[in-house]
Design a protein around this nucleic acid. Structure first.
Lengths: 145, 145
DNA sequence: CTAGAATCTCTAGCCACTATAGGATCAAGA
DNA sequence: TCTTGATCCTATAGTGGCTAGAGATTCTAG
């Protein structure tokens, strides 16, 4: 194999600076270097990065991925822990979906009721200015969706 | 009125450091100060912060809020722009919901297929390691949910 | 007058990257 | 062999939207 970092990036869909970042935070090991100090990777890293990317796409946080990686390297361990990480994550995803759907209703209503006239009659501004006009009980922290 | 920052925080649900942060980034104006250099707020700021908090809760970004605030201060302007900001946001929310639902399916399948035995038989690790086992086409950026 | 709550500024930290600057190295073609 | 240009290197700073902490000052009730 002996892949340079750009090729590893191409094969895994993880960007070059992100790979270096993952090395920095210890999510992947520092690989051997060429005489000119360039990183060279093997199949192990392709697999590991694919695992990481996939888990990130599924919304797992880096710390959770660290745990999953550690577990995957002890094949005799019980998978109870992996199961519970995934279950917790599933609950979290369900929560996010619920919140977004409440939010969706509110936004749709706002847009629907916009008179398309002047700001002073616009329901969008009005609703935003006055929480009591909300039909749905929506939620304070949406950073995670 | 002449509210100190803590009272403004209590009335709007925006935390004290966040209010100072909003002042720093120019989302609200710097208020007058007491002789001892403490901020004192009036009704205007209560309204404005409520507007901001509400819009944040609905998932609008600070830059969008800036635009909405600017618009709301020109009551004779057309609300077409507010409408399009809200609509764009609605589309974004729909996109997030779709992604999360695909993700949900995948996670549920993972959890469902976990044999609750040893790691080497655990579908969770396996599925994460191999994207091709995914039933749903899920998505690369989930930071916003 | 005093105690303690609230406020002030400033700086750094959070997460998971992304971007930029200013070099060095590598691989292919002339 | 030389050159070109793509890729690579490190280091630092920036992103968004806050949050936390230190250490000093001010306000207010008793």
């Amino acid at each position: 194999m002996n892949l340079p970092i750009g090729e590893l990036a191409r094969r895994t869909g993880v960007k070059v600076p992100t790979i270096r970042f993952y090395e920095q935070i210890g999510l992947i090991d520092a690989p051997p270097r060429t005489e000119g100090n360039q990183r060279r990777y093997g199949k192990t890293e392709v697999d590991r990065l694919n695992f990481i990317r996939h888990a990130r796409e599924l919304g797992f946080e880096v710390d959770q991925i660290r745990e999953l990686l550690a577990m995957s390297q002890e094949p005799q361990a019980s998978c109870h822990q992996a199961d519970s990480i995934a279950k917790a994550h599933l609950r979290e995803v369900d929560r996010r979906i619920e919140k977004l759907q409440a939010l969706r209703v509110e936004l749709a209503r706002m847009v629907d009721e916009c008179g398309h006239g002047r700001i002073c009659d616009c329901r969008i501004i009005e609703v935003l200015a006055d929480h009591s006009q909300c039909s749905a009980e929506h939620v304070s922290r949406l950073r995670q969706g």
